[in-house]
Nucleic acid binder design. Structure first.
Lengths: 327, 327
DNA sequence: CACATGCTTTGCAACGTTGCAAATTCTAAA
DNA sequence: TTTAGAATTTGCAACGTTGCAAAGCATGTG
């Protein structure tokens, strides 16, 4: 089934058929109908290789998939979200798994050099993310899950981390907490900075003592659990905690509980949640949700609009945190 | 950077350069060296659209990603596994998220009709999987994560579910259990059948009373938790349980514990684990691991060999379950 | 009836690659 | 020095698509 087939069937020329299928307005309505009809009857779908060769358009968007496992089920939801948004479009999704963060520049370089996609979605964005820099320099369409510190604007969709931190602190304040601790992991992301900043600000505003538990980035779940256990027996243990990673939350809660801490009595916790697993697991704990599925969809819509040439400044959105307070 | 560039630089013809790059043995060694050198210097990479148009080869493999969330982190690990295996090859990975199982035939039909990939990986395979049937009929390269009941052989890589069930039952027998219950979900997969069968067999051999908890497929985590809670207070409650889904395990354990059940005393449990989260969460519980990352790699290797024309019967492998016994 | 005019349609080239048939160059025997 | 035969290289067409310049075709005007 090629254009030629349709041309033969309709008795029109290749050019006419091609033009018609792309909605050539100079064509007679009758002709356009005839072509459309034949195309439908034959189930014609343009050959991607032909289009790509001729136009340079790949009709592909690429997702650079970070290997982080902090957010449970992140990959699946992100991909499903993207999938939902490209359904009914002619775009395909290629996924490029990233094994090490420091290789990610190579990945982008490859895409840029070989024009292997029309646009890229990246996640776990850093304040001065090298990938963002590269793609901005090349004027290549992309969108980041996460903001950056660059002065030049670029498309992004981000979880409103500052709102998350503020919300969590206020919730803890409402529970009567005096001393709150923020447990946070990946310090290479902008997200990290935003949360820490907003946390301190909110804690100060609420008149609470706020500390940040640093250096949890490379910890294994077992080590994290141990950390929770140790924390349980410390006399200066905080009475409120905020955790932004599901993996860490699971381990931490496990350790704290093993150490005898009873949540809701000795300690209040608010964690960031993306997967639906933790609420099942800890039905009594407060959480704030980021909808990764929705994020995938939004990122895709932004990217497609960017590819179509929409102004960058119109392509920056934030997702509001969704609190799930228990009791 | 196209073949033409290299041709101009080396002073050779397009044909010669093309031939040389594909290792034409009729060429003079000197010529081949010259071309190889120029190609490297210029960083030449064949244009995918050109190759695809001319040869029909897409150099793409497609993963049909099932929406199931039973196995936590399944998607990420599978994709990373595939990614590891296609690294250093010229293959790209496109992911096609599946929203509803009954649409999956359409997905395959689309790939088949439009030759949008050179091979397909499917997961959550059923005994008479329509997708498998279609691809076999079309003689299209694919590999399934999971076996089928078809008489015609096809490439697959599968978790050895029978061994899993037997292993789990034996472990429970060793713990002195008399009455074992299998909690299992997705009854549309071959896996389901295999586990149930092997479970009954192993239970009979061990002289235990074995029951299967059916109909847990569509249950929400909350309902599953409730089920665990109810089970906890039943007088005919089993003293050994086997669970094959992480999501279900989490909910079930939560419910049982809430109902006062103490694992290791009132009840022994062996669950199937793929993600590393559950061991963190339940450090005292026995589990048996399926390495999804490795499965992704193996599936890919099988598929690539299939694409290269290797005999189907040489492309069927099983992964041995990895027991993680505690205490 | 010749001829602008505007409306439709079409031929051609090109995108980068490969495979084949044919051309060119080389080697060594006559 | 020829020349058969082998060794090496090359021109050409085709894969499916699109954009442009140009051609064809009615229609109405002088």
């Amino acid at each position: 089934m090629t254009l030629r087939t349709i041309a033969e069937v309709t008795g029109l020329s290749l050019s006419t058929v091609s033009l018609s299928l792309r909605g050539g307005t100079t064509l007679k309505q009758e002709t356009r109908d005839k072509v459309a009809e034949a195309a439908k009857a034959l189930g014609y779908v343009p050959d991607r290789a032909g289009v790509r060769l001729r136009t340079g358009k790949t009709n592909v968007i690429a997702l650079v998939l970070d290997g982080a496992e902090d957010s449970i089920d992140f990959a699946r939801q992100m991909i499903q979200g993207i999938g939902g948004a490209i359904k009914e479009t002619r775009y395909h999704l290629t996924v490029i798994p990233e094994f090490e963060r420091n290789q990610s520049a190579e990945t982008i370089r490859y895409i840029l050099d070989n024009r292997t996609a029309d646009g890229v979605i990246i996640t776990h964005t850093g304040p001065r993310d090298a990938r963002v820099q590269m793609m901005m320099d090349a004027d290549f369409p992309f969108v980041s899950h996460g903001r950056t510190a660059f002065k030049t604007p670029h498309p992004y969709h981000d979880f409103h981390s500052e709102a998350f931190a503020a919300m969590a602190v206020q919730r803890l304040a409402g529970k009567g907490c005096k001393q709150v601790m923020l447990v946070i992991g990946d310090d290479s992301t902008t997200n990290y900075q935003n949360i820490v900043m907003a946390f301190h600000e909110a804690a100060a505003t609420a008149g609470m003592d706020g500390t940040v538990l640093q250096g949890t980035k490379g910890l294994t779940p077992a080590e994290m659990r141990k950390l929770g256990l140790d924390l349980a027996s410390r006399k200066d243990r905080p009475d409120g905690m905020i955790s932004d990673s599901e993996m860490r939350t699971i381990a931490l809660v496990g350790g704290l509980q093993e150490g005898g801490v009873v949540f809701g009595r000795d300690l209040h916790l608010v964690y960031k949640q993306t997967s639906g697993i933790l609420p099942t697991l800890f039905p009594a704990l407060d959480s704030i949700r980021e909808d990764v599925f929705a994020a995938g969809g939004e990122l895709t819509r932004l990217l497609l609009r960017r590819i179509e040439g929409v102004e960058v400044t119109d392509l920056q959105t934030l997702a509001e945190p969704q609190p799930h307070w228990r009791s």
